[in-house]
Structure formats: structure tokens, C-alpha cells
Design a binder for these strands. Structure first.
Length: 485
RNA sequence: GCCCCCAUCGUCUAGUGGCCUAGGACACCUCCCUUUCACGGAGGCGGCAGCGAUUCGAAUUCGCUUGGGGGUACCA
């Protein structure tokens, strides 16, 4: 069988979008599954919106997600260049070929004329289709228009291509995920393939690039379905082999609209900044439209690749909900080695002076605070009381815990005993201490609450023994003294 | 407006005419564990959009309706 060649072709007009990441993933999975090649092509035709920062972001994000490409702008490959703006000189040749074969023609219409046609169509409740008024211009007419200073755009003759290669105007193709798809090509206007400024349009450039890069399978979002029919006609007109297409459902926001900034993060890098692990992100996004055959949802990309079948991908849209992503991120955090986690948490601890702790204490702190983490960034708030002399005490904690007679009794007793406590043996000491008060009718829970509130300013948090150990006797004593009346 | 796509718990999904009294995961609720929060464990709530048709039999096939999404550019 022919080697599968798939690609992801992001447009660097923004940071790598989570939806693009999913498309990239499915391409990657298909390549891995079939032993094919995964290619990265940067579609920076629109110079206005392109920036190097976005290109870097796309590279970095894809790498962070583990979606490494076999051919691309940085690593090269046999069919480069892989950046569209560097390919501008190769398009005219194919435009000329289409012109010569009669599948394309020059169009001198002005934007105003085109606009008028569209308005007319809207008024008549008809689909707008270009009038083709430039299709049969004589050489004299063209020369005259050119003399006026008008520069032509090149349009593709949909009807001619259709008639040359299809019996009916209804063009079909077998989509890898959606099955038979069709479209009445008489409803497609003669679209521009080369703008009057000489740059190719998207629909033309992709075909040329995919053709030249020998891309034989195109997996992309279903927003491209309508483009597919245009592209098929171009392939045929060029006498090129038509690739297989697979269209994925879109990812929607919870309100079923397009995922955008107002719904929160959209770029992979934003998710990372917010404390998501790329492993969790990619795993989550794989589950949008695909499900594992063994029901085990936590999987690496490689494991997913083994189990991946493009035909089994769901053809409907899916909604991006944070609940499951958060849960999954928590699962991935749990799986991290302590030292690895400790390193990854550092960016979220910049507001604290980590020098207050030894490396050993730092690791210990992470060890006892890691359990409830859903996001790496949750650590920021979770460890606040480990830093500084005294913790900030919540008003409610002060009133409901520290101000009670029971708490004061407990804390005074701690101060009575603390000098004799061996902080290396806190577990037993606290056990005994709780027992002492339990005999007096004070619940262990209340005993611990009093200490916790005094030392951390909170009623909830990490394991008490660990907290006291890390803080050390002096600090613990000082903090308790401060709240005892 | 026109064209196309899609439709199973709140969400992601399993399901390809009888194994379905529709399964799982997340979320939610209850209980257990417990020095708190959490983790973990055990339960629970909850769905085939509607209507017709085909069939002995339909979540599964067909049609219509409704709903959602996409496209409709000299953007990509």
C-alpha cells in the first residue's frame, strides 16, 4: 500500500488553537497508525495577519503536545519549502496550465460590480453565483480593459471542469469519516484562484501544495467540506490524483457557538499557562470524537495511535467542557514523579520566596499539597501559609474557630507542651495529643482544627503533621502564640 | 435566503435490526474512609429530539419536522 502522507497546515494568524491541535492530533494518529508521514506546512499567505511569534508558538505547542512532524519548515523534507510564502513562484505555472487547458479565465470585474451581483442574488433569494461575464471576453476586450489599467484575477471555470470529468453537476466523494458527500456544482460560482495582485487564493494554493507534497489523505475540520468540491475539480483539471478526505466535526463552546476567547482559553499555550499539562490536553481532545476500544480513557498519544481508526471517529460536533479536562489533568498530575511535579510547579510559585525552604522541605511541601491539585496553578493558593512569618487569617476562621473557648484551650495546651515535642515524631505526638482532649470530650477534629487554624489561617489544607514539620517548631510556636489570647 | 453536515444521559461517548430493562467516563447527589479539604471505595440520579414508514421485532433502516453547526469572499 502507498505510504500515507497527511499534513497539518495552520495559518499563523494566532497562537495554535486547541481545535487546530485536535486536527493535528488526528492527522498524527492516522500517520502513526499506518506508518505514514505527518507533515507541517505553514500557510502564511496572508502577510497582514502573519507574525513570527505565532509561527514560533505553533511550533512550540505542537512539540509540547508530542505531535512531532516528519517534514516541515524547520526540518525540511523532499517536497519543500514548507512555508507557503516561500512558494509563491510555483503557483503561476499551474495557473497558466489551467488557463491553457481552458479551465480558467481572466476576470476584470471590479469589487463594485461583484458586490452588485451579490445584492441582486440576495434580493431574489437566490444563491449567489458569479455571472461569468468575463468568461468569454475577446482578446480585444481584454486588451482594452488592460489598457484602462485593470489587472485581472484568474477564475476557475467550474462548469467546464465539471463537464469534463463528471456526468452530472452533482459531484460526490467518499469522506473517510462522514461517508458519501455531495454537492451541486452549478451552485458553486467560478471562484478566483489567483488574485489580481498575483497571490493565489487558499483553495488553489492548498491543492497545489498538497499535490506537490504528495499529500494523499487530508484530515481537517468540517468547515472545509464545501471547499472540498472546488478542490476536487482543480485536482481533476490538473490531471492530479485526488487525495482521500476526512472531515472532523468541530469543537464548540458550551453555548454551542464557536470556541472563542470569551469562553476562556483557546490557544494551547494559554491552557499551559493556566496549569494544564499537555499530556492531559491532548488526551482529552482525542476523546472528543474518538473513543478507546477498551474503555480505558487515560492514554498516551502512542497508545491511542495503536487503537485509532479514522472511520470510527464521530462525525458530529462536540462541546468543549472543562469538567472532564480538569479531572483528567488531575489524574495526570497524580501520575507525575514528585521531583518532576516539584519542578513544574515552580512557575506558579513566583510570588513566594522559595529560599525560605530547603530543597528537602520544598519537596515535602509539594508531596503533602499535591493531592487535590486539578491545575498546576492551584498550587499558588494551596501553599500560601508555608511562606512568611504569619499566615493571613480569614475573618470567618478567626470567629468560628480561633475565638472559641475550645480552640483557645487546645492552643494553650500546645504551648504548654511544644517545647518538649520532638518534631521528627509528630505523628505519634499529635495522636496522643488528640487522645488527651478526646478524653475531655473534645473531638479530635476540633483539636486539629484549632491547630490548623492557628498555624495556617485556614480550616482546610494539607496533612497537619507535614505542615508542622516543614514550618518547624519556632514558626509554629510563634504563630500559635500570636493567636492565643 | 440558498447549499451542505450533524442529532443517544447536562457533557464526551459505546451501540451498525433481536445480546438494550440502552453500557462507560466526567459532572451532580448519598454513604463509607478520615485530623480538614481532597484522594480513594460503594451506590444513586439521568438519555435514544418529535412524528410517520419498513419489519415478527428499531437507538440502529427510510421520509418528514424540529433543533444545532458549517459554508456561501480577489480570508484562510
Amino acid at each position: 500500500m502507498e505510504e500515507i502522507r497527511v499534513r497539518i497546515a495552520p495559518s499563523p494568524s494566532g497562537n495554535l488553537h486547541i481545535g487546530t491541535a485536535r486536527t493535528a492530533l488526528f492527522n498524527y494518529l492516522y500517520a502513526k497508525k499506518t506508518g505514514g508521514k505527518f507533515i507541517l506546512r505553514i500557510e502564511d499567505t496572508d502577510a497582514e495577519r502573519t507574525s513570527q511569534a505565532y509561527i514560533d508558538n505553533i511550533f512550540d505547542s505542537l512539540k509540547a503536545l508530542g505531535l512531532n512532524w516528519d517534514e516541515g519548515p524547520d526540518v525540511g523534507g523532499p517536497y519543500g519549502p514548507y512555508t507557503q510564502s516561500e512558494r509563491f513562484d510555483i503557483y503561476p505555472k499551474y495557473v497558466q496550465e489551467l488557463l491553457d487547458k481552458g479551465f480558467a479565465y481572466e476576470c476584470f470585474c471590479t469589487p463594485e460590480e461583484l458586490e452588485a451581483e451579490k445584492e441582486e442574488a440576495t434580493k431574489n433569494k437566490k444563491a449567489y453565483v458569479y455571472s461569468k461575464k468575463c468568461e468569454n471576453l475577446t482578446e480585444e476586450e481584454k486588451a482594452k480593459l488592460r489598457a484602462e489599467g485593470r489587472k485581472p484575477a484568474i477564475r476557475f471555470s467550474v462548469e467546464k471542469a465539471q463537464k469534463a470529468f463528471h456526468d452530472t453537476p452533482i459531484v460526490h466523494f467518499e469522506d473517510l469519516v462522514k461517508g458519501d458527500l455531495h454537492q451541486d456544482t452549478s451552485l458553486i460560482g467560478d471562484f478566483v484562484i489567483m488574485k489580481s495582485n498575483g497571490s493565489p487564493t487558499y483553495n488553489f494554493a492548498v491543492v497545489i501544495d498538497d499535490m506537490l507534497m504528495k499529500i494523499n489523505t487530508v484530515i481537517r475540520g468540517e468547515d472545509h467540506i464545501s471547499n472540498t468540491f472546488k478542490q476536487i475539480l482543480i485536482y481533476e483539471a490538473l490531471g492530479a490524483e485526488i487525495p482521500k478526505f476526512g472531515h472532523l466535526g468541530m469543537i464548540l463552546a458550551p453555548d454551542r457557538s464557536k470556541l472563542s476567547k470569551r469562553h476562556g482559553a483557546t490557544a494551547v499555550s494559554e491552557f499551559v499557562e493556566r496549569g494544564y499539562l499537555t499530556d492531559a490536553l491532548i488526551n482529552f481532545v482525542a476523546l472528543l470524537g474518538w473513543s478507546p476500544s477498551d474503555g480505558e480513557e487515560i492514554k498516551t498519544v502512542d497508545e491511542i495511535a495503536k487503537d485509532f481508526r479514522i472511520h470510527e471517529v464521530s462525525s458530529s460536533n462536540s462541546i468543549f467542557e472543562y469538567d472532564k479536562l480538569n479531572w483528567m489533568n488531575g489524574q495526570y498530575i497524580k501520575k507525575l514523579e514528585l521531583k518532576d511535579l516539584a519542578e513544574r510547579l515552580k512557575p506558579y510559585l513566583k510570588k513566594y520566596d522559595l529560599n525560605e525552604l530547603t530543597e528537602e522541605q520544598y519537596l515535602h511541601m509539594v508531596e503533602i499539597t499535591r493531592e487535590p491539585l486539578t491545575l498546576l496553578s492551584d498550587i499558588t493558593d494551596a501553599v500560601e501559609y508555608f511562606f512568611g512569618e504569619y499566615p493571613t487569617i480569614d475573618k470567618e476562621v478567626q470567629e468560628t474557630v480561633l475565638d472559641t473557648e475550645t480552640s483557645q484551650t487546645v492552643l494553650k495546651e500546645v504551648l504548654n507542651r511544644i517545647d518538649g515535642w520532638d518534631f521528627n515524631n509528630l505523628h505519634e505526638i499529635l495522636e496522643e495529643f488528640r487522645g488527651y482532649f478526646k478524653e475531655q470530650g473534645i473531638k479530635p477534629k476540633l483539636t486539629m482544627w484549632a491547630i490548623r487554624a492557628a498555624v495556617t489561617g485556614r480550616t482546610r489544607g494539607a496533612d497537619m503533621c507535614g505542615i508542622l514539620e516543614i514550618l518547624g517548631k519556632d514558626k509554629v510556636k510563634a504563630r500559635i502564640q500570636k493567636v492565643v489570647k
